[in-house]
Design a protein around this nucleic acid. Structure first.
Lengths: 247, 247
DNA sequence: GATCCGCTTTTGTCTATACAAATAGATACG
DNA sequence: CGTATCTATTTGTATAGACAAAAGCGGATC
């Protein structure tokens, strides 16, 4: 019991993925597909529009529809809150607040965040432990103007990442992943050697172009990785099989 | 000049993003939106279907449509072929093949790839240079059964990543990012110190559940990072503003 | 109380038609 | 020859109507 819509989409996808229709190949015109599938143009149009929305094909009036060029260059990474991640993988997670201080934003940090200096912020340092082993060091800044209730929250029971996700609407997130060598203080906290390769995830979250929070999470390189699957049929759409950072 | 379709989508998105409609909130029924926008049900249906396809809302017959729970946990990373990446960023890229050898797949590597032992492979080592500085070390395995033409290709002018992208259809790609310390050989080639934190990208590409290629690309940590933006309105859909790994 | 049946509501899919917008290619004109 | 205009084709959007499928709900029956 598959719909015509679905059949058209799958037929075209199969031909693109199987290499029968290469990038640039012209897909039959709507009226040709109408003839082939014996259905109305609306149905064909919906099918092709859906493929276009997913980036499988590009469409131009008067010209036609064409197989889009392959892009291996995009992958969807699952980048979760650490505690959620650990729970999903069946590990035991706990956290400890190392530092919690209300400050005003200094010039250097303000520039880094793209915000103006002098704003009230909450600075948090937090150590995450998974199955008894230190797994990540979190250094976070929360803009108190955007999240006033953070001023009175201790974060003792709920980790800051999870708490913020539940509390604050956001409209944009940016992730950066880089490799850094652990400095002495970091190495000590994470119980690893100084100079050890660490995977650092930086995430900045905005709501309507104003920063909500900025966080830097440092993982020892031997205890963490990011992974993501990508299927060209699902261009850019997150798929269920993609794995989270694993241990 | 915006279509009704578009107006409905944007109105709903705005309310979800602004926190007016929280996750779980019931969106007006189709017939209510028909009344509100004075349009046909097909138009409303198409708008809501598109939102559902993007994961903004979930829909259930007889029950209604609801705001989906927020997911900050997914981000779209642009992970490109190195030479393409460098060109796009306006840098000069060159590469040198360090090793090129046809072998048979040994048991250990076969297990790592999830393939059976004994298959013919081409093993390539390649050094990438950007603006005169060593930028990445590439260690690649190509399954010759899947790409017979690789047997006679020297890869002297076109780097292997680009060549493969243009030659071979693929149906699945998996990316893993991890941090490692450079060993002596790697450090020498990349002109950095031994033990230096490096960002490693592993990519395995399949066609119809058979491996096409497996590649490990090692970047010095101080010369590379991955970055990606994510907008909840575009759930999982790659967006134009997201940046490539930068230097 | 438990189970089954049918009613009703809501979404899913499809049709046939219509007009609008973009644009490649042909044609007319200076 | 270059340029403006027209025309035919293709996609984009919208309508009104129809029936199907899923599922909550209440009532009848055992």
């Amino acid at each position: 019991m598959v719909s015509i819509h679905q059949r058209i989409v799958e037929d075209i996808e199969t031909r693109i993925m199987g290499g029968i229709w290469l990038p640039g190949h012209r897909i039959p015109f709507e009226h040709e597909l109408v003839e082939e599938y014996q259905c109305s143009r609306m149905t064909v149009n919906k099918a092709l529009s859906a493929l276009a929305q997913r980036g499988m094909i590009t469409r131009r009036r008067k010209v036609g529809s064409f197989v889009a060029s392959r892009q291996i260059d995009r992958t969807v990474m699952d980048i979760q809150d650490i505690s959620t991640e650990a729970e999903l993988a069946g590990h035991h997670h706990s956290h400890k607040i190392l530092r919690r201080k209300v400050e005003t934003l200094d010039a250097a940090t303000a520039a880094q965040l793209g915000e103006t200096t002098g704003a009230d912020i909450l600075r948090l340092h937090c150590l995450h432990t998974v199955d008894g082993k230190p797994n990540a060091l979190e250094r976070r800044i929360i803009m108190l103007a955007m999240v006033p209730s953070a001023r009175t929250e201790s974060f003792a029971s709920v980790p800051p990442g999870k708490w913020l996700l539940d509390m604050v609407p956001w409209s944009k997130a940016r992730h950066v992943i880089r490799a850094v060598s652990a400095d002495a203080a970091t190495a000590r906290l994470l119980e690893t050697e100084r100079g050890k390769a660490c995977l650092t995830l930086i995430r900045q979250t905005w709501q309507m172009s104003r920063t909500v929070t900025h966080v830097e999470i440092i993982h020892p390189g031997d205890r963490f990785q990011f992974a993501g699957d990508f299927h060209p049929t699902e261009r850019g759409v997150p798929n269920q099989r993609s794995k989270r950072g694993s241990f």
